[in-house]
């Protein structure tokens, strides 16, 4: 019988211990945060460290999507990941390291990209990531490198023709951690939103009849529509989604290197070439 009593007590202890662990975790977080802000205050001395680290490694670690046509898509046949984001990443690698192939791509999703960046697994996120005020508290962003707007993807012949026809009874599908989820909830209060781990799962769910429309940035949606002509993008974009490249907070030297690269690309026309290659038309000026 003794054992059972101890079991009971251990259960209580266990739950208590979890709370203590949670507490410790917080302390650590607080510690990390203050250390980071301290680093900011210290200024440039710490800043060049990030670039130095990349150079020492000789390889740029970039988080990109593997499931987003036109931006970052893994092709099972070749094993390559291809898209707009990949070409931009290569240009940044060339700028920093002098070789566009000195790069290692790692798969991120909307859900995992900020944790992976903050854990130091990747130097930057080039993954259809909208610049928002909230995210700026967590990471630093480059200049805008792509201008998207949120829209809706539906099965052809759907009664949904745009944001106007989305009601509380519409089932919307999206990806965990994406801004589009928040936006649609604000535009249509009370709407049902189902969140998936990535866009591929969300699109599979749309095809499987799990919802009425998939929402995210129009550029991503056009990629999906090009993959399956039973689906189309409807209505006008109803938000502005300026994409930025995210780096760990405080790595201002990396931000500068990225911004220099973007400026270079825009000046020598390469940006337009990459844009046209993937999006099919020249960027609006």
């Amino acid at each position: 019988m003794n054992k059972f009593k101890s079991f009971k007590w251990l259960s209580v202890l266990m739950v208590a211990a979890l709370f203590v662990i949670a507490g410790c975790g917080n302390n650590n977080n607080a510690g990390n945060n203050s250390a980071a802000s301290g680093g900011n205050a210290a200024g440039n001395a710490a800043d060049s460290a990030a670039i130095a680290k990349i150079k020492e490694r000789g390889k740029l670690l970039v988080g990109v999507k593997y499931d987003t046509r036109l931006f970052g898509l893994k092709d099972p046949a070749s094993g390559n990941v291809e898209g707009f984001d990949i070409d931009i990443s290569k240009a940044i690698a060339k700028h920093i390291l002098g070789d566009e192939n000195a790069i290692e791509l790692k798969e991120v999703t909307s859900k995992t990209r900020i944790p992976m960046l903050n854990n130091g697994e990747i130097d930057m996120v080039v993954a259809t990531m909208t610049i928002t005020e909230e995210r700026k508290k967590e990471v630093d962003f480059s200049d805008v490198y792509f201008q998207a707007g949120q829209s809706l993807l539906v099965k052809k012949g759907s009664p949904i023709t745009g944001l106007e026809s989305v009601t509380k009874d519409t089932k919307i599908l999206g990806s965990k951690g994406a801004t589009s989820i928040k936006n649609i909830k604000e535009k249509v209060p009370g709407v049902t939103v189902l969140e998936f781990d990535n866009y591929q799962d969300a699109f599979a769910a749309l095809k499987a009849g799990q919802g009425d429309a998939l929402t995210t940035d129009d550029a991503i949606l056009y990629g999906m529509a090009s993959q399956d002509d039973g689906y189309e993008v409807v209505g006008k974009p109803f938000t502005d989604e300026p994409y930025g490249i995210a780096v760990q907070k405080g790595n201002t030297d990396v931000v500068k290197a990225i911004n220099d690269t973007l400026a270079e690309l825009k000046a020598n026309g390469e940006y337009d070439a990459i844009y046209t290659k993937w999006i099919g038309k020249a960027p609006a000026k």
């Binding site: 259960s11 266990m14 739950v15 979890l18 709370f19 662990i21 949670a22 975790g25 917080n26 977080n29 909307s110 859900k111 900020i114 944790p115 903050n118 967590e138 965990k176 951690g177």
Partner: peptide
């Protein structure tokens, strides 16, 4: 994904399961 605090969020989830 809203709090950016994976550790704390999941510790509480663990408590709910336990």
């Amino acid at each position: 994904t809203e709090t950016y605090r994976t550790f704390d969020t999941y510790i509480f989830v663990a408590v709910f399961y336990l």
